[in-house]
């Protein structure tokens, strides 16, 4: 009898404890439900829809028609603007990302001192990164580099009136203007570099100084190797960001002149919302995903040979 009773009570106990666990989890799920609902509704759902749509012809006004791989095939075989957009985007990433990282590192090193107010300065220099994606800054950039812009006025002021041009509407310079804006938004990688610099043990520099190493060899032999994990992280993040560039191109140049700033996402947007080729645009989005995945994978693969992790004994 007593045997039965204990059995029963343990049974009840496990049931109630299982119930408790479930209840506990429910509470947890409820707490993240705003995010979860958003994620399923606004990320997963649209992704599935876009994958389906990429095999259709869809103009939003009539229902989607299944066309199989046609979108993907015509993209590669029959659309010179698709290739142009790919090339422009690649060019942009290859130039802008290293420049931005180099500049961020340079500024981070300037700030890596124990001067007073260093925190304030790095905050101020971080501001462009917060504002960078905004419409206001893009408009400002357009005004700065326009034909009657401040840049031309300054050039004229110092007697360089001959080289003034309409920077934004010149096929030769339009992309550079946007690259400049992106480089100017160096704040995020700069802060990460700064944290990385502060983590490099002072003894290394001291020892090197004692051995008579100058600034440059200290930079190449100590700073860079010790920073590689941070460089790696920044490189991955900025490359992904770089491929997704949209706002700046849309607002400053609108893809022109001569399609010289027709970024991939800009062309995607144009296909979707100007020509209402939703199926084609969806297919482009998936190609973009593959391209970003490919480049990220390449960076990860090569990282083994150039990234130095102290914690792994310098493997």
């Amino acid at each position: 009898m007593s045997q039965l009773r204990t059995d029963l009570s343990t049974n009840i106990k496990t049931i109630s404890s299982r119930k408790k666990v479930v209840m506990k989890n429910i509470a947890g799920f409820l707490f993240i439900s705003p995010w979860l609902i958003g994620f399923i509704g606004f990320v997963i759902g649209p992704m599935i829809a876009s994958f389906y749509l990429s095999f259709t012809s869809y103009d939003m006004l009539t229902s989607a028609k299944w066309v199989g791989l046609k979108n993907y095939i015509s993209m590669f075989t029959d659309d010179p603007r698709f290739w142009k957009a790919l090339i422009v985007t690649l060019k942009f990433v290859v130039i802008a990302v290293p420049l931005k990282l180099a500049f961020a590192l340079f500024v981070a090193m300037l700030f890596n001192t124990s001067h007073k107010g260093q925190g304030l300065y790095s905050t101020i220099y971080y501001v462009p990164s917060i504002l960078g994606g905004s419409v206001a800054v893009a408009v400002m950039w357009r005004l700065l580099f326009g034909r009657d812009g401040a840049v031309n006025a300054m050039l004229e002021g110092v007697g360089l009136g001959i080289i003034t041009t309409d920077w934004i509407n010149s096929p030769d310079y339009a992309l550079s203007v946007i690259i400049l804006l992106i480089v100017w938004q160096f704040g995020a990688p700069m802060l990460i570099f700064l944290a990385g610099l502060k983590n490099i043990p002072k003894e290394l520099y001291e020892a090197a100084a004692v051995d008579g190493a100058g600034f440059i060899s200290r930079f190449i032999k100590i700073t860079i190797p010790m920073l590689t994990p941070v460089i790696f992280f920044n490189l991955v993040m900025q490359t992904i960001h770089g491929f997704m560039i949209f706002t700046q191109g849309y607002l400053i140049t609108g893809g022109g002149p001569l399609d010289e700033t027709l970024f991939f996402s800009l062309y995607l947007y144009e296909s979707a919302f100007e020509y209402f080729k939703m199926g084609y645009a969806s297919a482009m989005a998936w190609i973009m995903l593959l391209i970003i995945a490919f480049f990220t994978a390449v960076i990860f693969k090569t990282s083994k040979s150039w990234v130095y992790y102290e914690s792994e004994g310098g493997r």
Binding site: R147, T165, D166, I168, N169, G254, P257
Partner: peptide
Amino acid sequence: TPEMVAAAAK
């Protein structure tokens, strides 16, 4: 100039 036309089209 083509630049002027491009700017005017904005």
